[in-house]
């Protein structure tokens, strides 16, 4: 499903956070939003998710303006995979994933046996069936992130929004989570992530959006966006971008440090 953002602007206490942001994420696309701290990534994210509605411009998903949608309808289109979830109470992995069923339940109902089945399917799909009855608190960061992905699959929404999904993960888990997300785009899911890792977004994305000072400074395929110039504009650090393995991978080398 397509996500279209048009002329989106948001100001906090008259201080502009986002200015004239427009882009389109198509079905099956892996879109990374790259930008330094304070660039407006989180705000953009919250606007798309409908958690922040005091913006001007429009966000349309599958052609529908999201401002006209109820939380329930919205949840049928977009699933949110938070960076880290720390539930106050001690839920099992199974129960957390089961929460993805909520949008289909009428207010006073609890999940049914069929929901249990779908929950097992979602756990199986991200390869964490063995964690089903474990306590969520006790999992590693990578496992928790996979649980969040399973919950999004349970939710059965065509667009997945991941907020810095690999920020707290070790190297192995970062790649595991990214590969999982990439595999989902092959099935038609649209994945939008915010990230602090230029190299990783190059490796996995179909498109990179470079956001700086609340504006999109570049939007295109990774090969066009991930250049020394862009990285320097974004982060204020001079880098040499080195291409490896027939340009399948690019590495940023900070010039002043090495």
């Amino acid at each position: 499903m397509t996500v279209e953002v048009e002329h989106l602007a948001f100001a906090y206490d008259e201080k502009p956070v986002l200015t004239d942001v427009s882009f389109t994420a198509r079905e099956g696309q892996f879109l990374s939003i790259l930008g330094p701290n304070g660039a407006g990534k989180s705000t953009l994210f919250r606007c798309i998710l409908g958690l922040q509605t005091k913006y001007t411009g429009s966000v349309r998903i599958g052609g529908t303006d999201t401002k006209t949608l109820s939380p329930r309808e919205m949840a049928g289109l977009v699933a949110y995979i938070p960076q880290s979830s720390r539930p106050t109470f001690n839920y099992s992995v199974f129960d957390i994933v089961l929460m993805g069923a909520s949008r289909k339940l009428s207010p006073f109902r609890a999940p049914s046996r069929e929901d249990n089945e779908r929950c097992r399917w979602a756990l199986e799909k991200v390869g964490i069936s063995h964690l089903a009855q474990r306590c969520f608190h006790r999992l590693s960061g990578g496992e928790q992130q996979l649980v969040m992905i399973a919950r999004a699959l349970m939710q059965d929404a065509p667009v997945l929004m991941m907020d810095e999904p690999t920020a707290n993960l070790d190297y192995g888990n970062q790649l595991l989570v990214m590969r999982q997300a990439k595999a989902l785009t092959k099935e038609g899911y649209t994945v939008i992530q915010t990230t602090h890792a230029p190299e990783q977004s190059y490796l996995f994305s179909d498109r990179i959006l470079a956001l700086s000072g609340g504006r999109i400074i570049q939007d295109g395929p990774p090969a066009e966006v991930l250049t020394g110039e862009t990285v320097e504009t974004l982060y204020g650090i001079s880098v040499r971008v080195v291409s490896l393995e027939n340009d399948k991978m690019r590495v940023c080398m900070p010039i002043n440090i090495i």
């Binding site: 919205m74 949840a75 909520s102």
Partner: peptide, 27 residues
């Protein structure tokens, strides 16, 4: 007792609850 499941979702925090399709402030 009828709201038992929605309370579960609410304990995940407002943002998550909303994106799961539960109108957090109302619940």
């Amino acid at each position: 007792l009828l709201s038992r499941w929605q309370i579960n979702v609410l304990t995940m925090g407002d943002d998550e609850a909303r994106s799961l399709g539960v109108n957090a402030p109302r619940v």
